[in-house]
Computed example of a mutant assay.
Amino acid sequence: MELEIGQIMEILPHRQPFLLIDAVEELEPGKRAVARKCVSYNEPYFGGHFPGEPVMPGVLIVEALAQTGAVAILSMEENCGKTAYFAEINRARFKKKVVPGDVLTLTTEIIRQKGPIGIGSATASVRGEVVCTAELTFAIGSKEE
């Protein structure tokens, strides 16, 4: 299953400039998602990170991975309209810089879930080379909580 930006916005509450995925290329609801982020020189953070040497901040790569996982978990019928909140980030490793012109492939697989708490194994890559890995813990909640 593939999703375009409008369909992603029906699942995620994020909006520009903080919606960090452009398309979902593969989706297995509740199990796995693979998304794409086209990194443009026009991203607002490049003005200050870093002048003369633009590098995508690692925390935003992790956030893009989390949003990819959120699409996987929130696309389940029982989670429709809910929000996936960060609960924990473990073992985040950054292996290469991400710069303007790169296309990030973001893969998050839900490896455990018990009630509203789950864990995703996440990998970001550019042209087949891993740039970031992390284990992401999320909590599913409604907007009223």
Results as ranks from 00 to 15, higher is better:
Lys82His: 08
Leu65Trp: 05
Thr83Gln: 14
Glu2Asp: 10
Glu109Lys: 10
Ile61Asn: 06
Glu129Leu: 14
Ala35Phe: 08
Gly115Val: 00
Glu26Thr: 02
Arg32Gln: 02
Met76Lys: 11
Cys132Gln: 01
Glu78Thr: 12
Leu3Glu: 02
Leu65Thr: 09
Gly58Val: 05
His14Ala: 11
Ile110Gly: 09
Val99Leu: 14
Ile21Lys: 05
Leu12Glu: 06
Gly81Leu: 08
Val98Gly: 11
Glu28Ala: 14
Ser75Ile: 00
Phe18Gln: 13
Gln16Asn: 14
Ile21Asp: 00
Lys31Val: 15
Asp102Asn: 10
Val55Ser: 04
Lys114Tyr: 12
Glu53Gly: 14
Met1Asn: 12
Ile140Arg: 07
Ala66Met: 02
Val126Trp: 00
Glu129Ser: 15
Pro116Val: 08
Glu28Pro: 09
Leu3Phe: 10
Gly58Pro: 10
Gly81Ser: 13
Lys114His: 12
Cys80Leu: 15
Asp22Tyr: 04
Ile110Tyr: 05
Ile111Glu: 08
Val98Cys: 06
Phe86Cys: 13
Ser142Ala: 15
Ala33Asn: 09
Lys97Glu: 12
Gly58Asn: 04
Glu78Pro: 04
Glu2Ala: 14
Ile11Ser: 09
Leu136His: 03
Val62Asn: 01
Lys95Ile: 07
Ala134Trp: 00
Tyr41Leu: 15
Thr123Ala: 13
Gly128Asp: 01
Ala72Ile: 05
Pro54Trp: 07
Glu63Ile: 02
Ile8Asp: 01
Leu19Val: 06
Leu20Phe: 09
Met76Phe: 05
Ala84Gly: 04
Met1Asp: 03
Cys132Gly: 03
Cys38Phe: 11
Gly81Thr: 09
Glu135Ala: 08
Ala134Pro: 10
Ile21Cys: 08
Ala84Ile: 00
Ile111Ser: 14
Ala124Val: 04
Leu60Trp: 03
Gly115Lys: 01
Arg112Asn: 12
Val24Met: 10
Val126Gly: 08
Ala70Ser: 15
Ile21Pro: 00
Pro54Asn: 09
Glu88Ala: 15
Glu135Gly: 06
Glu28Leu: 13
Leu19Phe: 06
Glu78Ser: 14
Tyr45Pro: 09
Gly58Trp: 05
Val71Thr: 07
Thr133Ile: 08
Gly47Asn: 14
Glu10Arg: 15
Gln16Pro: 07
His14Ser: 12
